[in-house]
Computed example of a mutant assay.
Amino acid sequence: MSIEIHQKSARWSDIDLEAIAGMAGRATFERLGLDAEAVSLAILATDDAEIAELNAGFRGKPVPTNVLSWPATDLAAAEPGGLPAMPRADVFGEIELGDVAISYDTCAREAKAAGKPVSDHVTHLIVHGLLHLLGYDHIRDPDATLMQGCEVEILGKLGIDDPYWEKDGA
């Protein structure tokens, strides 16, 4: 597995993003039956200012967000709730997935609000971003159900609680 990390914000130095991305990647690819060693992708570890610019440029939303993804290939299922297509290796046996950007500022703020460790939330967002690269989405309800189910299963295997479960009184 080749994960190229571009750290653009010094705040990321508090987190071992390389280890988290590797762990999240292996768990995600194992769950989906992909050979992790054949996969390559890039992660931009940035801040709210830069991710807001990216969000404005690519989605027309000039506000910060936690994670953005740019898949190399559109693998989305045509039917709501359908499984995305599996990525194909190129002539060299490599699977180029695409790029993910993640904002430390938004991630840390969300983790604090949820009362969970930043590293757990970063892991969740990396898994979420990887699933987007692999054709999963959450726009249509059946797709959201499928994607969230995968996320919960992958995170559970990593010892991370269901991020969609709300505590009583929350």
Rank of each mutant, 00 (worst) to 15 (best):
D90Q: 11
V63P: 03
G93F: 01
A113K: 08
N66M: 09
A144G: 09
R88S: 12
A89V: 10
S103N: 02
L54M: 15
D90R: 09
G115H: 04
D137A: 15
L134T: 03
W70Q: 08
A72S: 11
L97C: 04
R140G: 10
E96W: 05
H132E: 05
A78T: 12
I139D: 11
P62E: 11
M86L: 14
L125E: 07
T73F: 06
S103Y: 00
T65H: 11
L131H: 01
T123P: 07
M147G: 03
A89L: 09
H128K: 04
I95A: 13
P87T: 03
G81A: 06
T73V: 15
M147R: 08
H138C: 08
P142H: 08
D74N: 14
P64W: 05
D90I: 12
A101H: 06
C150G: 04
H128E: 05
C107F: 02
A56V: 07
G115I: 02
M147A: 09
R109H: 09
T145Y: 10
D90P: 10
D143G: 07
E151W: 01
H132Q: 10
I139P: 06
N55M: 03
A72H: 07
D90H: 10
L75Q: 01
K61F: 12
L146D: 06
A77I: 07
K61T: 12
A85Y: 02
V122E: 00
V63D: 09
G135C: 07
D90S: 11
A144R: 14
R109D: 11
V67Y: 01
P87Y: 00
V118W: 00
D74A: 04
S119L: 02
G98W: 01
I95F: 12
T145R: 14
I95M: 15
P84Y: 02
D143M: 05
T65I: 14
G149K: 00
G57D: 13
L146H: 08
M86D: 13
L83Q: 03
A78P: 05
H138L: 07
P142Y: 06
L133W: 03
V63G: 03
L125A: 06
G60I: 08
S103E: 02
M147W: 03
N55C: 08
T106Y: 07
L83S: 04
A113D: 09
E94V: 10
L83P: 00
A111N: 05
K112V: 10
C150V: 08
M86K: 14
A144P: 03
V118F: 01
H121L: 15
M86H: 11
V127L: 05
K112E: 14
H121D: 11
A89T: 12
E53T: 12
D105G: 09
R140C: 11
S69N: 06
Q148V: 14
F58A: 14
G149T: 01
P71W: 04
E110G: 09
E96Y: 09
V91S: 12
G149I: 00
C107D: 03
G82T: 05
P80W: 02
F58C: 13
L146M: 15
